[in-house]
Amino acid sequence: MKKTLRNIGVILMRALGSDLVDAETGRVIGRALLLPWRGRIVVLGLSPEQPVRPVFVTQERLTYWKQEIGFTAHPPPDFTSGRDSDDNPHPPAA
């Protein structure tokens, strides 16, 4: 019962919320309801499948009175091998 109510709450929060647009790519990366609360921003209803990072959005025009906090996502992990031992089947290119 508790879980059902929680899930219904999540559906409502997403319905009342807005799409989160990646501040770097412009791609929609999630949907959530954002509320300011005691000096923080509370993110409600965001799917864990779409982890996002908060970032201040760059501005074309200099303003001292307004800045925007947006969101972005890490690209898919694609780190090269960091091993240089003999058991490394694919050592980094010299």
């Binding site: 993110v43 965001l46 864990p48 499948e49 982890p51 996002v52 990072r53 996502a73 890490h74 690209p75 898919p76 992990p77």
Partner: peptide, 11 residues
Amino acid sequence: HLRRVDSTSYP
């Protein structure tokens, strides 16, 4: 479902 999650909202 490999993803990078540091400094993100990932619970």
